[in-house]
Simulated assay, not measured.
Amino acid sequence: MKKILVTGANGQLGSELAVIATNYPNYEWIFADRTQITLDDLILLRVQLGAINPDVIFNCGAYTAVDKAETEKELAFAINHSAVELIAKFAAQKKAKLIHISTDYVFDGSSSVSLSEEAITNPINVYGESKRVGEIACLKEDSDSIIIRTSWVYSKFGNNFVKTMQRLMQERDEINVVNDQIGSPTYAADLAKVMMIILESPNWIPGIYNYSNEGEISWYEFAKAIKEFGGYTCKVGGIPSASYPTPAKRPEFSLLDKKKIKTIYNLDVPNYKESLKKMFVK
């Protein structure tokens, strides 16, 4: 029986993979939190990987605190670069399948058209920089690996924009949300299913793939959809990013082009509203 190691088990994607794991009893699943797979300690990480000896690695663990990364650069790079490099090296040596999760934040946001996998990367914050060098290291150490870039991830698990909006819309009469950052959200449950489709497919074609739900929206429009499905009465206003300064810059436009993954893996990608609705009815 093949063994699947999921890093970042308590995160949004790791938690969604745990939900669908019951549909795949033909695998032995190992859901590792930060104590079982210690991404900021390479010596320990090497030992832990050797002890588990997986056939498949879903690397969902990452340093994702975008604003904190500006002051914790060393830690962000340790987890998002050095650990990824080591995991990819291990996967290549053991001939284990590796799917590594990356981000739309590898782009600078200056594009006006959806970004393909070949689009030029130019991260504008430390988090994006750390994830980009992690991508490069992953493909260099394991040319057979698959990287999935995703954006605006949310789930019923963990902390995310949807859950924050749900809370604020119940606590306040009025909120403001930035309306000049454009992209598309990703329901982690959808992404978890896609990872299994890729793993089970006879077509294992290495390289970078983009995945998010369909739709081109701002965070403000996303908030309005959350209000609609939640039936909240809170007033939602749109504001420019300049009115809501953060330590880390965000890309203004990071809509991912998904043609490649849809074609190769014959995927039908749901619209963001369709997926958001699923989270509300669960």
Results as ranks from 00 to 15, higher is better:
Ile4Leu: 11
Gly8Asn: 10
Ala9Tyr: 10
Gly11Ser: 14
Leu17Tyr: 12
Val19Trp: 10
Ala21Leu: 11
Thr22Phe: 07
Asn26Cys: 09
Phe31Leu: 07
Leu42Ala: 07
Arg46Val: 01
Leu49His: 14
Asp55His: 15
Tyr63Gly: 11
Ala65His: 12
Val66Arg: 09
Ala69Leu: 12
Glu70Cys: 08
Lys73Phe: 08
Phe77His: 14
Phe77Ala: 06
Phe77Asp: 06
Ile79Tyr: 02
His81Val: 07
His81Tyr: 13
Ser82Arg: 15
Val84Glu: 00
Leu86Gln: 15
Lys94Tyr: 08
Lys95Gly: 03
Ala96Leu: 03
Lys97Glu: 05
Leu98Trp: 00
His100Val: 06
Ile101Asp: 03
Val106Gly: 00
Val106Glu: 01
Gly109Glu: 02
Ser111Ala: 15
Glu117Tyr: 02
Asn125Ala: 05
Asn125Ser: 08
Tyr127Gln: 01
Tyr127Val: 00
Gly128Asn: 10
Glu129Thr: 06
Gly134Lys: 01
Ala137Ser: 13
Ile148Ser: 13
Ile148Arg: 04
Phe161Ser: 01
Met165Gln: 08
Leu168His: 04
Gln170Lys: 13
Arg172Pro: 02
Asp173Trp: 05
Asn176Glu: 07
Val177Arg: 02
Val177Thr: 04
Pro185Gly: 02
Thr186Arg: 00
Ile197Gln: 15
Glu200Met: 10
Ser201Val: 01
Ile205Thr: 14
Tyr209Asp: 07
Asn213Leu: 05
Glu214Cys: 05
Glu214Asn: 12
Gly215Asp: 01
Gly215Glu: 01
Ile217Asn: 00
Tyr220Val: 04
Phe229Trp: 11
Tyr232Ser: 05
Thr233Ser: 12
Lys235Tyr: 06
Gly237Pro: 04
Thr246Gly: 01
Thr246Lys: 11
Ala248Cys: 04
Lys249Met: 14
Pro251Ala: 12
Glu252Leu: 15
Glu252Lys: 15
Glu252Trp: 14
Leu256Ala: 08
Leu256Glu: 06
Lys259Gly: 11
Lys262Leu: 00
Thr263Asn: 10
Asp268Ala: 11
Pro270Gln: 01
Tyr272Ala: 01
Ser275Ile: 02
Lys277Tyr: 11
Phe280Ala: 06
Val281Ile: 13
Lys282Phe: 08
